[in-house]
Design a protein around this nucleic acid. Sequence first.
DNA 1: GATGAATGAGAGTTCATTCAT
DNA 2: CATGAATGAACTCTCATTCAT
Lengths: 205, 205, 205, 205
Amino acid sequence: MEQIQGRAQRTKNSILRAAEQIFAAKGMDGARVDEIAEVAGANKRMIYAYYGSKEQLYEAVLAAVYSRLRECETAPVADEDPRRAIRALVHAYFVFLKNNPSYVRMVMWENLYEARHFDEGGLMDVRSPIRQAMRDLLRRGKATGVFRMDVEEEQVLMTLFACTFNYFSNIHTMSRVMKQDLLSEEAMNAREEDVALLLQRYLEP
Amino acid sequence: MEQIQGRAQRTKNSILRAAEQIFAAKGMDGARVDEIAEVAGANKRMIYAYYGSKEQLYEAVLAAVYSRLRECETAPVADEDPRRAIRALVHAYFVFLKNNPSYVRMVMWENLYEARHFDEGGLMDVRSPIRQAMRDLLRRGKATGVFRMDVEEEQVLMTLFACTFNYFSNIHTMSRVMKQDLLSEEAMNAREEDVALLLQRYLEP
Amino acid sequence: MEQIQGRAQRTKNSILRAAEQIFAAKGMDGARVDEIAEVAGANKRMIYAYYGSKEQLYEAVLAAVYSRLRECETAPVADEDPRRAIRALVHAYFVFLKNNPSYVRMVMWENLYEARHFDEGGLMDVRSPIRQAMRDLLRRGKATGVFRMDVEEEQVLMTLFACTFNYFSNIHTMSRVMKQDLLSEEAMNAREEDVALLLQRYLEP
Amino acid sequence: MEQIQGRAQRTKNSILRAAEQIFAAKGMDGARVDEIAEVAGANKRMIYAYYGSKEQLYEAVLAAVYSRLRECETAPVADEDPRRAIRALVHAYFVFLKNNPSYVRMVMWENLYEARHFDEGGLMDVRSPIRQAMRDLLRRGKATGVFRMDVEEEQVLMTLFACTFNYFSNIHTMSRVMKQDLLSEEAMNAREEDVALLLQRYLEP
DNA sequence: GATGAATGAGAGTTCATTCAT
DNA sequence: CATGAATGAACTCTCATTCAT
């Protein structure tokens, strides 16, 4: 499938890649179809042939970045030791978010658009796996007595998401408020450690 | 001051209010100057007379929403009991963010625009008061032995901001992921309680 | 009349002066009423109070610059010696055109506007004096035998106007074509001499 | 070349033709892009696709009219008899200027704009051919003794340009001053004869 | 006599989208 | 499959002019 992709598939892919770059950078309104076509090295008309409209192309991009996340977020939970699994998860999110700025930005745009394209992109269940994994993890932790009995899966996940995602989503205003460069490795590592500590204290009985 | 404001001041204000509504809803690129003028009940020309350009109007809006936050966020820290002050702060943020969706959205837009307008709007020190207040609060908490000695002001603030702001900023995608309406009062109260607990456990020795 | 001019007359004059500057520089279409008011240090509304409209103000300026010319062009012809009178006239035009760039430009704009405002400004007879003066001059020159008998007043005037006016009106393109700065004193003096010679040879029997 | 011009070239040409008409008539400031598009029978967007901006289109028009002149002005000088060549040149200019009113007007606008677009249009050397031709012509005339030894190429050209160009550039105000229609054939012929005479007397030893 | 605020029409320019080949 | 040309609506911004005081 990847081997023998024709010219058509190649064009389609390069359009998607270009679109991710442009949409992530400028959002739906700021993005220009011309620019996407130019970056993709494709004729503008092809965008309409393959994706129908600017909006549908945007939805394709949204689905693409979410699918990359899905591939990353369940693996770390596999660790037998529940506390180590949490720690690994924190790390995995920091790594993913740092390496996937276009995921961060697309999620932000999408929230500003009130998740209008979320369902159209077929993303309702995109994060069910991590929810299930977290449920299992908490059960194991409670059973072995390393986690509080009354922690709830939703709250843990929301804390986890908030403390990792927000660091990257608000990095520009926060760097100014904190008067330090939060993109630096030290700042990021320090924050990761603290988030891990935070969760540990939150979870322990 | 509000009593005897001339026609000009009234027009200028109504433009700013309309602009906040539209910019918060659609961002810089999505907003239309025509629409702002219409909502303001003012002539489009007046926008340029009073604010110079669409971008400068945007900056004025950004400064306005931040100044509303500044008025709210330091008061709760005044409580003598450090633990109660933290709890009050969490509550204050939930209330503020719930009642000021345009603050949430403007901060999101601004981060997507890489804080381009932050400095122009004279906002570099807009959050210095809360930082100072938090420093004092932690000092008091450590002195009286109710807070850990090694907590850092920056980390506490980032956690606080992340756990409150993110709930509102990502509410649309999160509602879908969590398959529940996070805008509901119960969901919001539950989350507020949990964030308070989280911070308490994080801060205690 | 100049002594005891009230505030009103002063405003009216400063508007006219500002208008000459702006209209000469940018023409009817390029000129901005706001800018004229600003340069005049007057309220924009006053332009309409005193002159009725932008176009009528333009006409007033046109009439003003022509009236300045009229004051200059007949005097030199007074010389008794016809040849000296011609020489003096050439000089007078060079001096006038050099010192009145706004005359040159207003005449150019007006020709491009197909002299639309010429008649409204009451300028039909503005140059009758010089025509009459030239007629007398030629008569005298023919009578004393220093001029050809068949020279015609119209042709002499057109040559005179063309060779003087055009030097200033086309000075920007001509400076580039001739690859020298025609605004320099040397270039201007040389040209004046040559035009004088030209006319002398043209007029002599 | 004209045969097999595509649709694009045809559109581009018709825009240029329309632009020449409108810019010549109304100048840079007075011209409306909408009107040019309408006259060209083209979509307004195409103007920007082909020429980039109103100003660049203006420059293209300026270059176009100058290039038409260049094609006409050197040929007449080819005559072996220097005096006949001068006569032919006068005639050629009268014919050209009469038939190319948009050249006359564009040069006027351009001078009023202080030749701002002259260099951008790559016109610095557009009239070098005629200058060279005139230099040769004068040399021949001096060698054969039919021209004065001390005439200068620059002065002859300036006289020639002034006496021909000015007749057309100032025809509207001059018709009023002279109280006759200078556009009439008789007036024009009479003037041409007189200019020829003028130059002959100016050049002869 | 003079002012500051307001207006509506229209300016140049850009865009997502479609046609014709 | 791919392209270059075209479109019409809409965008930000500006202007001459007038109203209300």
